[in-house]
Computed example of a mutant assay.
Amino acid sequence: MKWFSKYFFNGLILIVPITITTFVVINIFSFTDRLLGQYLPIHFPGVALVVVLLVIVLVGWLSSHWLLKNVIGYGERLLGSIPVVKFIYNSVKQLATAVFESQKLLQNAVLVPYPHPGVKSLGFLMPELSAPLAEKFSEEHVCVFVPMSLNLTAGFNIIVPRRDIIPLDVTSESALQYVITAGSIMPRSNDSK
């Protein structure tokens, strides 16, 4: 019966994000399509996609300007003062930030002594440690994400001394392929792009 629960949860891990993403995307496009159908005299296939992309780019562009930054900051502080909304908003924002910045996060491949000294695991250097963590160590430590093979959504964040990491001169894509394929595709150097 252990195999059933293992495969059931593995299936959920794969199906739930895909289903939620599909649901959200379809609903955004169908809402935009209905809205545009009411107010625009001209309708053609793909207009919702074009409008959604333009709105996202416009909001991104506006959010980089001083005035809108202050408005967004005020809105976030306002949301942060409502107990349940604060939790939901902060959780979704952190998750979205992690997902959309993950390409930047998985850039620096390194080898670290994990799961015990004497062996090396491929991992990715994470952002600098925050002050509450860094001050607990007498020497410089870094955070490394060691992903599990075949599943990049699971892994371990380990904190190791900087002197124990071995930087790799490999492409981030090939390092990710190495992890996803459980080592059957070896990482390529940056020179062989």
Rank of each mutant, 00 (worst) to 15 (best):
G123Y: 03
G123C: 08
F124M: 12
F124A: 13
F124R: 10
L125P: 11
L125A: 14
P127L: 12
P127K: 12
E128G: 12
E128R: 14
L129N: 05
L129G: 07
L129I: 06
L129R: 06
L129Q: 03
L129C: 08
S130N: 09
A131D: 11
A131Q: 09
A131Y: 02
A131W: 00
P132G: 06
L133Y: 02
L133N: 05
L133P: 00
L133T: 14
L133C: 06
A134F: 01
A134R: 09
A134Q: 14
E135H: 07
K136R: 14
K136Y: 00
K136W: 00
K136P: 01
F137H: 13
F137L: 08
F137Q: 08
F137Y: 15
F137N: 09
F137R: 10
S138Y: 00
S138V: 05
S138N: 05
E139G: 09
E139T: 15
E140V: 13
E140D: 12
E140N: 13
H141K: 14
H141W: 11
H141P: 07
V142C: 11
V142L: 06
V142A: 06
V144G: 08
V144A: 11
F145C: 03
F145Y: 15
V146K: 03
V146G: 02
V146C: 05
V146F: 02
P147L: 07
P147F: 05
M148C: 14
M148G: 15
M148Y: 10
M148Q: 14
S149K: 11
L150M: 10
L150H: 12
L150Y: 12
L150D: 07
L150A: 14
N151T: 12
N151Y: 04
N151D: 14
L152P: 04
L152T: 09
L152E: 03
T153C: 10
A154D: 02
A154V: 08
A154Y: 01
A154T: 12
G155A: 01
G155Y: 00
G155S: 01
F156A: 06
F156V: 04
F156G: 00
N157C: 07
I158C: 01
I159D: 01
I159R: 04
V160M: 08
V160H: 04
P161L: 05
R162A: 15
R162L: 14
R162I: 12
R162G: 08
R163W: 00
D164S: 12
I165T: 07
I165V: 13
I165A: 10
I165H: 07
I165E: 06
I165W: 02
